[in-house]
C-alpha cells in the first residue's frame, strides 16, 4: 500500500511547508521503478512514525512546479522538512534503515 498522504501543488504549502510536525516527502514518478518498489516501506514508516513525522509522496510529473522549486533532478528524491526548512535530502533508492536514519534526525 502506498503512503496515505499524497501531496500536490494545491496542498504543498499547508501540508509540507507550514506543517506543525516534520514532513518527509517522496518525490516520485510512475516510470521510476525504485519509486514504485519503495512504496511498502514508506507505508510501514508512516505507521511507525505516526504523530512524529508526516510521510507522503508527490508525483513530479503531475506537479512539476513544486518539483522545479525543490530542484528535483533525479528520482526518487526524499526531502525531510522541519518548520519549512530542508533538514536532509537524498536521491536514489534507500533502505529502510537509511530512511529511518533520516527520520530520526527530527523525531
Amino acid at each position: 500500500m502506498p503512503p496515505e498522504l499524497k501531496f500536490t501543488s494545491a496542498n504543498f504549502q499547508t501540508e509540507v511547508i507550514g506543517s506543525d510536525v516534520p514532513v518527509m516527502v517522496d518525490f516520485w514518478a510512475s516510470w521510476c521503478l525504485p519509486c514504485k518498489a519503495i512504496e511498502p516501506i514508506l507505508s510501514e514508516l508512516a505507521e511507525d512514525y505516526k504523530g512524529k513525522v508526516k510521510i507522503g509522496k508527490i508525483n513530479v510529473d503531475q506537479n512539476r512546479k513544486i518539483a522545479s522549486q525543490c530542484g528535483i533532478q533525479g528520482l526518487p528524491t526524499f526531502i525531510l522538512f522541519s518548520s519549512g526548512r530542508v533538514i536532509d535530502r537524498r536521491t536514489g533508492s534507500q533502505s529502510k534503515s537509511q530512511l529511518k536514519e533520516m527520520l530520526n534526525r527530527v523525531s
Binding site: 521510476c32 521503478l33 525504485p34 519509486c35 514504485k36 518498489a37 519503495i38 512504496e39 511498502p40 516501506i41 533508492s93 534507500q94 533502505s95 529502510k96 534503515s97 537509511q98
Partner: peptide, 22 residues
C-alpha cells in the same frame, strides 16, 4: 522482475537498497 526495496546489498561495510532494479 524487480527487486523490492527491502532487498539490501551489503558490501564493504555499506548497504544499498536494490529496490526497483531489474
Amino acid at each position: 522482475g524487480i527487486f523490492p526495496a527491502d532487498a539490501i546489498l551489503k558490501w564493504d561495510n555499506r548497504e544499498w537498497s536494490l529496490g526497483g532494479e531489474l
